[in-house]
Design a protein around this nucleic acid. Sequence first.
RNA 1: GCGCCCGUAGCUCAGUUGGAUAGAGCACGAGCCUUCUAAGCUUGGGGUCGCAGGUUCGAAUCCUGCCGGGCGCGCCA
Length: 575
Amino acid sequence: MTLYARFAASLDGILDSLVAAGSLPAGIERRNVTVEPPRDATHGDLATNAAMVLAKPAGTNPRALAGLIAPKLGELAEVESVEIAGPGFINVRLTPEVWRQELKVILDEGARYGASHMGAGKRVNVEYVSANPTGPMHMGHCRGAVVGDALAALLEYAGYQVTREYYVNDAGSQVQTLARSAHMRYREALGETVTIPEGLYPGDYLIPVGQALAAEFGDRYVGAPESEWLALFREKTVAAMMDMIRADLALLGIHHDLFSSEAEVQRAGKVNAALDRLRAEGLVYEGVLEKPKGEAADDWEPVEMTLFRATAFGDDSDRPVKKADGSYTYFGNDLAYHAEKASRSDMLIDIWGADHSGTVKRIQAAVKALTGSAVPLDVKLVQMVRLLRGGEPVKMSKRSGSFVTLADVVREVGKDVVRFTMLTRKADAQMDFDFAKVVEASKDNPVFYVQYAHARTRSLHRRLAEQGLAPVAEPDLTLLDAEELALVKLSAQFPRIIESAAANHEPHRVAFYLFDLAAAFHSVWNRGNDDPSRRFLVVNDMETTSARLSLADSIGQIIRNGLAVMGVAAAEEMK
RNA sequence: GCGCCCGUAGCUCAGUUGGAUAGAGCACGAGCCUUCUAAGCUUGGGGUCGCAGGUUCGAAUCCUGCCGGGCGCGCCA
């Protein structure tokens, strides 16, 4: 239980006692009562809005009600002082001992400090990456991959049971194109000189696939009609692409629990089953769509096809699930896939590129229809990343097949830098990724600044050891001054940050918090520049040094815990 | 035409799911340091939270309508 939850419980008890004493009517809704650290530290350590929220239903005014609550809060052993402020806030200042104890809690709980039971073991499915299996991962996929992976770890840390899932789009026309491209490379491997036609995938990465196909099948399919090899080549090539993608993801430390195949969903009859269910409820029907309102619809012809009644769930138009020729649309398959995912989850999260924003409503409509709104679906849209080098845009040419691959970037700046940087912006805000800036060793660079703070906490141990010194077994934490204890107060907010980041599906909050914590730590550390007696390591005073070492260790622990959620390794030293 | 996202300091962005005097970095001004506690430190100025209404004890946050920017719209995936 966090410090804040503990006080919320104490407050609840006080309110109960006021009810019992007849000073507060029974049965008042307390849901909006909060216990939080005030934004302004001069207001104390905790603040509650209880008096303001409850005054009206209690038929009194906030300051009068606060006058009843405040003295009872003041009786708590951990409370140093209480004051009523502004419109009726009750500000509480805690004794220094509370923070000294919290420091010990951080060190005792270690990697579990900040972990939460908020999720109560509920099953969350996070689907992310799901890049088409037609080539290696490039930077366009990177941000969604990192955000999804960090969100999965965050939810796990917050007590959810998480499945990390990748939806393999192996049923559409793109993988047919892929198979034809691989066939060209197959012929090439058998000695033919080939030119990859416009519209096929020209990338070199298919050369080894062609060679493998040649080695396995010889020249059997060189002149054969497509019907004989297309499905086979597709399957083989997709498998090769997925191996490549898995290897790319591993460079980022990303490992999915489950890879679900679109083709398999179809083959297993799950699409028909889902559509039949909806048809029975009148939510799937044969019909004709209106001409789209946008421009470039000159070639529009009204044709009858199978539609899902998405408008019944807030979408702007009903959506095709089957084309006029009877084959499924992408959405039809995706609908069935989400039905399947929903059947084994309590909550669904999809991480999509922002260019798919137009299709969010239909899939949410589908999940509502399929689950009776029992399984919520959050579609997180991730904005594009602009690649820069020293402020200049990095040129990319898709036509020649040369794009900036994820593997190249990880090789250049490292996994940890990529991951951290991708989390330094809200997912739905666009972002610049400058190769020069992300590796810069300066305060402007949050990746560096946070790692540097951690390295400093570790350097203390190295330097102690070098000088043959050892900290005392039971440090006297009363030697910590107010500014040092303020670091503990900031550390104590970590569990709250985790819970709010998890509840809002916003892993970037962890990155911003760590930057704040690092800045506060550096600031305390820098006091030693002017006054050697305020350094963390004071050679002739092992008592004080030991207390400060505990503080530094607790900060290091929080940074490690936060970085672990982000999937970033903490640096032992800055070489 | 419609939908989604966005609009916060000169710039890049946070803002604890409605809290108190709206924050950080950069840039700018002023001091300090010339060091291995090292890749700077301290401090100051800087705001009509796009505009206008509404909801209430209280709004950057929620609602409505405008203005401005980005993305999207199909039997594509």
